[in-house]
């Protein structure tokens, strides 16, 4: 796993009226990596994020950002962080530019040139001097992103960032996040209800349930390699797979087998020499939704999905 973490949650705990909302949560986030933060409603995602950005006080534990603890040096630690908490609510009665100016003044050393640069980056040059009240939701999201990027944060934290964006907007947003994670080596932490979204965007996911971290996994390396094989006739294919020592499971028109990548050419050869008509052979990955269901139990997912 890459270099030293940029953000570290150490035994983070939040107790509200005797109830542990967040229970001893520890997590490390690394530069250049997008980490998804998943969990059913009420699991404590928003609470965790709010403790990380100083909106809520923690009851125990520590948040370390680039070597600075949040409790010891709030200003220094938070100056490394860019935040979008839910829908970015801007001052509607001011222009987009004045909003950016407002937030720029709250950071050290942001020049007018930097503001213009960010405005260009998010493609808002044409309308930046109009009042935010006249913006569409997509425009406001872009402005929200712009304010989070002004000070070139090393760490970007996003709570439900794509709420209310249309598919094109979501895609654009996702690609943009990937880009800055890669080019500027920014560590990104995204909480979302939209599993497919997280799946497409993240390198790694952390799953939280009842205030505890229940799973942390890398998306790039599937734990077990599965392949989907579709060939005709099906019963002969099944036999052949069996004779080659693959465990197969019937899915749709074909079979899912568990196999190493290196075995695949061999399999293709065997299929064609046996005279079977091969239609498809492709890596098969369980969707995040399947995994999430397994982890957290269906009941709570239903609640999640209804949001």
């Amino acid at each position: 796993m890459g270099p030293t973490p940029i953000v570290e949650l150490k035994n983070l705990t939040k107790t509200i009226r005797g109830k542990k909302i967040i229970d001893d949560l520890s997590l490390q986030l690394y530069p250049g990596q997008i980490t998804g933060f998943l969990g059913p409603n009420g699991a404590g995602k928003t609470t965790t994020i709010r403790m990380m950005v100083g909106l809520m006080k923690k009851s125990g534990g520590e948040v370390v950002i680039d070597g600075q603890t949040l409790s010891a040096d709030f200003e220094e630690a938070l100056s490394k962080v860019g935040v979008i908490v839910e829908n970015p609510e801007m001052y509607k009665f001011m222009s987009g530019y004045k909003n950016l100016l407002h937030f720029a003044r709250m950071q050290k050393g942001i020049t007018k040139e930097r503001i213009d640069e960010v405005v260009k980056q998010v493609g808002m040059q044409n309308r930046i001097h109009e009042k935010v009240g006249t913006y569409s939701l997509g425009m406001r999201q872009r402005l929200g992103l712009a304010q989070a990027l002004l000070h070139r944060p090393k760490f970007l934290i996003l709570d439900e960032p794509t709420n209310g964006l249309d598919p094109a907007g979501i895609r654009e947003f996702r690609e943009y996040l990937r880009l800055i994670a890669k080019t500027e080596n920014v560590s990104v932490f995204v909480s979302s209800h939209m599993l497919s979204e997280i799946e497409l965007m993240c390198d790694r996911i952390a799953v939280i349930q009842n205030g505890k971290l229940v799973d942390l996994r890398d998306m790039s390396e599937p734990q077990e390699a599965h392949y989907y094989v579709e060939a005709f006739p099906a019963d002969q294919t099944f036999e052949l797979l069996g004779s080659l020592g693959f465990k197969s499971e019937s899915v749709n028109e074909g079979f899912v087998i568990q196999a190493e990548k290196t075995k695949i050419p061999e399999l293709v050869n065997a299929l064609s020499t046996a005279g079977l008509e091969l239609y498809a052979i492709q890596p098969h990955r369980k969707t995040l939704e399947d995994q999430f269901l397994e982890l957290t139990g269906g009941g709570q997912l239903a609640e999640t999905a209804s949001k």
Binding site: V81, V83, E89, Y91, K108, Q147
Partner: peptide, 14 residues
């Protein structure tokens, strides 16, 4: 009431 408090307080300013 505008919801801007979240934006205002997530800055590096006490």
């Amino acid at each position: 009431s505008q919801g801007t408090i979240k934006m205002l307080l997530t800055r590096p300013v006490k």
